[in-house]
């Protein structure tokens, strides 16, 4: 009898302790603005490679709202850690610098290649490294907590852009935790703009390998259970058909990874993903 009473009391105490330990986690998850976005590569133990293969008879890839040419850099300063917001900001500024040249003074982020403007790759331009360092400071990365919050990120970006003599505003494209407002993304692409997304967990698709002979596609994908910010710049839809019927439709939001590998890839929507917020970044004269 006494033993059972002790068990009940122990159970109750353990419950109270567990509840008190876990409550702050839930609280921080419900407050997107207070969450710090810190990953520049996935944190240890937070990621999983989940590549997969789809078999099809035919497929249709809709690229109407795809943007191919954007800037994609990585953090080359080994002293700077948890810098994904600064990297996303640098990609945004770098992309806009083509049309607003004072954003990165005395620097051209790309050149006309054939018939299109193509951005230079991630080769460690001093102007880009300097921009990233500046944004790192303006966004107060690692000053309050590891990484930067959404508010710190957007404030730092605004401060930089207005300091260069341009206007900046943000328009939300958030729809729910696993997708964005695709109509607004279409408008963003049509207007030549880019955006930013803040996720508390996310997936990243590095690329597709279509094998037209075998009628298969291999999707190279990883899931990350960490908070991360990325530049977004368009989307694609791939519909797969078998026996004359569409059996699968996948929508991929284009995003620069911000990882050390500076990938240009995709976030698979309606998948392993918790979007906290997403915005079109509007920069104007």
């Amino acid at each position: 009898m006494v033993l059972q009473k002790k068990r009940l009391v122990s159970l109750a105490l353990a419950g109270v302790l567990a509840a008190s330990l876990l409550t702050p986690c839930f609280a921080s998850r419900t407050s997107a603005s207070a969450m710090a976005y810190s990953s520049e590569g996935p944190a240890a133990g937070s990621s999983e490679l989940v590549s997969y293969t789809i078999e099809y008879d035919s497929y249709i890839q809709n690229n109407d709202h795809r943007r191919v040419h954007v800037a994609s850099y990585n953090n080359k300063n080994p002293d700077h850690t948890n810098s994904c917001t600064a990297v996303a900001g640098t990609n945004i500024i770098g992309t806009y610098d083509k049309d607003y040249p004072n954003l990165i003074p005395n620097f051209e982020p790309g050149a006309i290649n054939g018939s299109v403007y193509m951005y230079y790759p991630n080769v460690g331009f001093p102007a880009v490294t300097g921009l990233m360092d500046t944004l790192y400071d303006l966004m107060q990365v690692n000053q309050v907590a590891p990484g930067a919050t959404e508010q710190q990120c957007l404030n730092g970006l605004s401060q930089y852009v207005t300091g260069k003599g341009y206007d900046i505003s943000y328009s939300s494209v958030y729809e729910n935790s696993t997708t964005v407002d695709l109509d607004k993304i279409e408008d963003m692409v049509a207007a030549g703009k880019v955006g930013i997304i803040f996720c508390s967990k996310f997936n990243y698709v590095y690329g597709f390998v279509f094998n037209d002979d075998a009628k298969t596609v291999r999707v190279s994908k990883a899931n990350y259970n960490s908070a991360h910010a990325m530049m977004i710049y368009g989307y694609i839809v791939i519909d797969y058909y078998k026996d004359g019927q569409k059996f699968l439709s996948e929508t991929y939001l284009q995003a620069t990874s911000g990882f050390s590998t500076a990938d240009k890839g995709y976030i698979k929507l309606n998948d392993y993903l918790t979007i906290e917020s997403a915005y079109v970044v509007n920069i104007s004269e």
Partner: peptide, 30 residues
Amino acid sequence: SVEPQPEPQPEPEPEPEPEPPSDGIFFLTE
């Protein structure tokens, strides 16, 4: 088929995920 199909194809074999070399280790970016 509803969608344009060149001709009926035999069911493709599922492509197995590539296996790392037997004496190699797979590393995540993390």
